[in-house]
Amino acid sequence: MVVDLLKNISKCSFCGFCEISCPTRFLAKRNYTPRGRINSIIVFVDLEAKGESLKSEEMLKGIFTCLGCGACKIHCPAGVDIPEAVRSFKAKLNKNSRKVIE
């Protein structure tokens, strides 16, 4: 799952063309836009590989406020499937938290 996720988001060059289309951009915080969400995922996966954790409330809010509407996807010149990246990251977070609960 992480490999597929990284393959998808590694194409992101942080150009920001996706930002203008996102309905939650009005929240005016980086983590509530497609580029910000991709950045959160990259930082999370990177830190996790080093045995550290970045599961802050703000990061969670940014990820879980993604509507999955797909408006950003058609604006991405690199062809990153942003809604699927965010959705599969939600799946990863869900799996992680269940492990903690168990």
């Binding site: 309905p23 939650t24 809010k61 879980f64 406020t65 509507l67 999955g68 509407c69 408006a71």
Partner: peptide
């Protein structure tokens, strides 16, 4: 190019 109605996240964050 349609924009979302906001519905998919209504159970998580009704205000947003």
């Amino acid at each position: 190019l349609t924009n979302c109605c906001g519905g998919p996240i209504e159970a998580l964050t009704p205000k947003i």
